[in-house]
């Protein structure tokens, strides 16, 4: 393949179709989301799959969008923080819990944390503290020491179990 070959992709993002022209086959989903589509809620932290700041959901699974080639995601359902947010501006129970537990300092890790945690809670409604520690190991936070983030996710898990 010509290393400068450009593609056109139709991506399904947040329930809508986006035609993106002139995508290089090596462009990551993160680059396309942020630089081409202006969906900057997905954060660039390390471009190395280490920090989870760029987490998006692809077919419901959390994925580091810095490691995913945009061209590979054609035909799959992508959800970013913009698509996860409630349209009316109100917060989801997980977002409310993060605010209540003072889990937001600089906030750069938070969009990735929200999506990773929501997918964990969907998959493991019975998640214990040890489960959350294990499953959230791919999302770095440098500000909080994690205890407030852990408390928020646990609070949502327990509320859901109780109801």
């Amino acid at each position: 393949m010509n290393r400068h070959a450009l593609l056109s992709c139709r991506l399904r993002i947040n329930g809508a179709s986006h035609d993106v022209e002139d995508v290089h086959f090596g462009d990551t989903l993160l680059e396309v989301l942020r630089d081409r589509l202006g969906l900057v809620g997905t954060k660039q932290g390390c471009e190395d799959g280490q920090c989870g700041a760029c987490t998006v959901l692809i077919d419901g699974q959390p994925v580091n969008s810095c490691l995913e080639l945009a061209a590979e995601t054609v035909g799959r359902e992508i959800v970013t923080i913009e698509g996860y947010n409630r349209r009316d501006g109100s917060l989801t129970p997980l977002q409310e819990a993060l605010v209540r537990q003072a889990a937001i300092q600089c906030g750069f890790c938070i969009p990735g944390i929200v999506l990773a945690a929501e997918s964990l809670l969907a998959e493991r409604p019975d998640a214990t503290e040890d489960d959350i520690r294990t499953e959230m190991d791919g999302n770095l936070c440098r500000c909080t020491g994690y205890s407030s983030i852990l408390a928020a996710i646990l609070e949502v898990a327990e509320t859901r179990r109780g109801s």
Partner: peptide, 19 residues
């Protein structure tokens, strides 16, 4: 904190997000 809502929704503009 006054920026908590924007941050938890990913709408807070960081230096990386400027255009």
């Amino acid at each position: 904190r006054p920026d908590a809502i924007a941050k938890v929704r990913g709408e807070f503009e960081f230096a990386t997000d400027l255009r």
